[in-house]
Design a protein around this nucleic acid. Structure first.
Length: 618
DNA sequence: AAGTTCACG
DNA sequence: ACGTACGTGAACTTT
């Protein structure tokens, strides 16, 4: 047995690395003893984060408690794998994992243990930490990584196992990317840190548990988050079918387009279309007046500035006919758009696709401060929606069609529920269009389309905490008119202002933390305490989506789910019963919140591509 | 590392 | 007293 010792919070802890069958037998004896006493912490070391690439490998599986860790060299195969599998399949102790989704998916993919088997055994210390404080260190929080949490709760001198290893990689001539694969399986630091991670996780658990109960966070919220984590991990495992041939054609086409317009920009002196300084200088030399400034005071040459110079509508890119188009501005926006679509989307699709032709984006069910989910590599929540070109690359399964189901104006409904806005609630219950109803209250029955637009803008302003200026800019309506609309809005829906000031007062009395309907604790930034309304609304809307996912899971729909997108769910459903599935998804997304009906509408064009739901048919 | 821009809800 | 649009991921340039 290879053994390392290390001091954590004044205790000497032991990291065992079994080398022989006899060593593994000792591991088994320890596991049986430990499992009888409580949960066992688990972690894995892998060759990288690309779980679904062919070359991905599971290197070690670590188990441990607060004093002892066992680093099992999975990579050595044979008995090493058998003992790890014995623990997970036969002994089945309760498990403590930091960021469980990752290890579930790794063990599912490389050890053949379904995540459905592991999830019910698991408590995730990252979820627990996020419910205590969701902020990252740079936002003024503790952080939710194992390193900052250990430093804060266990031992300020706890090693930065990842950071120190990265330094070790460099001294071995490896990089952050190649190190996890290239470092020797017997490297002392690698093994010591692999073991310390589970010891730290084991120590974190009781501390975070006590902290959650001290703060009064309901155990139900913790259970709910673990369910959502399982559902999201399942979606990640399933992935989405990619039309790779189409992607390659799109890659070529976008590359040509980007380069063609870049050449045109070069004729006007812009060598690099991504250089704001070059664009500003060249446009000024052409006699354009650039009046807008960025926050730091530089000349602003973003899309809205450039499209105006190119005489194009901000959304449709149709000619406006208000001035003679500036050819450089036109070339720059076109080159940049093609370049971005290619680099951020198409190329990431092709880089991340697995051998079965599926992409498996990473879903983080609890990423934003408000609890909102995020999706990365590829960032499938942010694909262009104005044009179906990029979304066309993603398909429903063979024999399936794509369905998307959106909540109806969920944030306004959540606001009505949380703030108990009487007239809003009855309008929603009566099935009226909320912005029409508001416009009729503000402007009378003869309201115009422009009036409705202003009221919609004011509604957004309420949800986001925006002022008259921003709403005026967004809606294009005059400042005075918007100011008047806001004043009337506040008169007809007086509960919103009352809710906002009440929530802000409570948060200030609670160390600048607002607690949501579901018991989520959301820290506010001192200078933006007004954001409390948005935090409350955004977070409750996220929990409505979470509940919908759980409803769908209970109906056995999880294998069909593809993506959660804030107020929308994307699913791949059998073509023949598509409409039945669409109705079932709608039912799962329908609920009431504080007496307000939350409804959803599913859409399908009975076609395979996601792009089919946007514009023309494909 | 900071700043800018652009894609989404 | 006043007024503040919210939350993300990703690529790229400049420093």
């Amino acid at each position: 047995m290879k053994t390392y010792r290390h001091e954590i919070a004044g205790d000497v802890v032991t990291v065992n690395i079994p080398q022989t069958y006899e060593d593994l037998d000792s591991f088994r004896a320890w596991a049986e003893w430990a499992a009888a006493r409580g949960p066992i912490a688990l972690d894995t070391e892998t060759t990288g984060l690309d779980i679904y690439s062919e070359t991905f490998g599971l290197r070690t599986v670590q188990f441990g408690d607060a004093f002892t860790a066992w680093v099992i060299h999975w990579e050595r195969g044979g008995y090493f794998q058998e003992f790890a599998l014995w623990l997970l399949r036969k002994l089945r102790p309760r498990l403590l994992i930091h960021n469980a989704s990752y290890d579930w998916l790794v063990l599912n993919q490389r050890a053949g243990i379904p995540l459905e088997d592991l999830a019910p055994l698991t408590r995730d210390t990252k979820i627990m930490a996020t419910l205590i404080d969701p902020r990252q260190p740079q936002e003024g929080g503790i952080g939710t990584g194992l390193k900052p949490l250990s430093g804060h709760w266990i031992d300020p001198s706890a090693p930065d196992t990842q950071g120190d290893l990265t330094a070790e990689f460099r001294s071995l001539g490896l990089t952050k990317e190649t190190g996890w694969r290239g470092i020797g399986l017997d490297h002392p630091t690698y093994n010591l840190y692999a073991g310390l991670d589970v010891i730290l996780t084991a120590r974190l658990y009781p501390i975070l548990f006590a902290e959650l109960s001290r703060l009064g966070v309901r155990p139900m919220l913790l259970d709910y988050e673990h369910e959502i984590a399982r559902i999201c991990a399942t979606m990640q495992r399933t992935g989405m079918v990619l039309d790779s041939d189409y992607c390659r054609k799109m890659d070529t086409r976008l590359s040509e387009e980007s380069e063609r317009y870049a050449r045109k920009a070069r004729r006007y002196g812009v060598e690099n279309v991504n250089s704001t300084a070059q664009i500003a200088e060249a446009l000024t030399a052409m006699g354009e007046e650039l009046t807008e400034r960025t926050d730091s005071g530089n000349v602003k040459v973003d899309k809205s500035v450039l499209l105006a110079l190119a005489d194009l509508d901000l959304h449709s890119w149709e000619p406006l006919g208000t001035r003679s188009p500036n050819p450089l501005a036109d070339a720059v926006v076109r080159s940049k758009r093609a370049g971005k679509w290619r680099k951020a989307y198409v190329q990431t699709f092709l880089e991340t696709v697995d051998t079965m032709g599926r992409v498996h984006p990473m879903l983080n069910p609890l990423q934003a401060r408000t609890g909102r989910m995020s999706i990365t590599r590829p960032a499938l929540q942010t694909l262009p929606s104005s044009d179906q070109m990029v979304r066309r690359a993603l398909l429903a399964d063979e024999g399936h069609v794509m369905v998307s189901c959106d909540f109806d104006a969920v944030e306004m409904r959540v606001l009505a529920a949380l703030a108990d806005v009487k007239r809003m609630k009855s309008a929603i219950t009566d099935g009226m269009d909320l912005h029409d109803f508001t416009a009729s209250l503000v402007y009378g029955p003869g309201f115009t389309k422009q009036h409705r637009k202003i009221c919609k803008g004011v509604g957004f302003g309420k949800v986001y905490g925006g002022g008259a200026q921003t709403i005026s800019r967004q809606t294009g309506a005059g400042l005075r008119e918007v100011q008047g609309a806001i004043a009337t809005y506040d008169r007809v829906y007086p509960e919103i202002k009352r809710f906002a000031s009440r929530q802000e007062r409570i948060a200030r009395g609670n160390g600048l933390v607002t607690v949501t309907l579901t018991g989520r604790r959301l820290p506010l930034d001192r200078h933006r305490a007004y954001a409390v309304t948005n935090y409350q609304v955004q977070s409750a809307a996220r929990d409505v989506l979470g509940q919908a996912l759980i409803n769908m899971d209970e109906k056995g729909l999880t294998p069909l789910l593809r993506l959660p997108i804030h107020d929308e769910v994307l699913a791949s459903v059998p073509a023949r019963e598509a409409d039945d599935y669409a109705r079932e998804i709608e039912r799962c997304m329908t609920m009431t919140l504080g007496g307000v009906p939350i409804t959803a509408g599913a859409e399908t064009k009975h076609l395979r591509s996601w792009g089919s739901l946007y514009g023309a048919d494909y």
